[in-house]
């Protein structure tokens, strides 16, 4: 790794924090998805279904926003290949 300067310009800083968020998201997801196991006795119920799918949809939304911003910020620029936009 090259000797990167210790402080980055605003843009680079944002990009790093975006990557941090992308790394953090699965941990949040794990916490959300393990909730039903904590409440194991109650088992399957309509509120549980709604909670689970709600959390799932929320994670997907955040992930979509993050992925788009990561792509736009050029964090993937070290990869080769043609530019491509999400559908």
């Amino acid at each position: 790794m090259g000797r990167a300067p210790p402080f980055l310009a605003r843009e680079g800083y944002r990009r790093r924090r975006l990557a941090d968020m992308a790394r953090l998201l699965p941990l949040v997801g794990l916490a959300l998805f393990l909730m039903p196991a904590l409440d194991a006795r109650d088992g399957l119920s309509a509120p549980m279904l709604i909670y689970l799918f709600g959390a799932w949809a929320g994670l997907i939304t955040v992930s979509a926003i993050l992925a788009r911003r990561l792509c736009r910020s050029g964090a993937m620029d070290d990869s080769d290949g043609p530019q491509a936009e999400g559908p």
Binding site: W56, L59, S63, A64, A67, C71, M76, S79, A84, G86
Partner: peptide, 23 residues
């Protein structure tokens, strides 16, 4: 995989597919 960027899209689109399949 054709392009690493496709992974960025799949990162949310594939979970969405899974969610719809189990809905």
């Amino acid at each position: 995989n054709e392009d690493e960027r496709h992974l960025a899209t799949a990162s949310w689109a594939f979970p969405a597919y899974l969610m719809l399949m189990s809905l």
